[in-house]
């Protein structure tokens, strides 16, 4: 399984898909977040392996 953390929430999804596909299936527009691992940006075409963890950084701000 792949673990995604977003603003304190944890999302667990099966491996075997690209990050873009994982995000879309979770209802997240890929361009509205940055996927980060160990402080580094991970490209959306990356296909995570079982056990990998990522943080989703929100991009939209403002009032």
């Amino acid at each position: 399984m792949v673990i995604l953390r977003r603003r304190g929430q944890v999302l667990t999804v099966p491996a075997g898909k690209t990050l873009e596909r994982i995000l879309r299936e979770a209802g997240v527009l890929p361009d509205t977040v940055l996927v980060v691992r160990d402080g580094k940006i991970v490209p959306l075409h990356y296909q995570p392996r079982d056990g990998e963890e990522f943080e989703l950084i929100e991009v939209i701000s403002g009032g």
Binding site: D31, T32, L34, V36, G39, I41, I57, V59
Partner: peptide, 8 residues
């Protein structure tokens, strides 16, 4: 998105 990336 670019600004978040820039800051990171």
């Amino acid at each position: 998105r670019e600004m978040v990336a820039y800051c990171l």
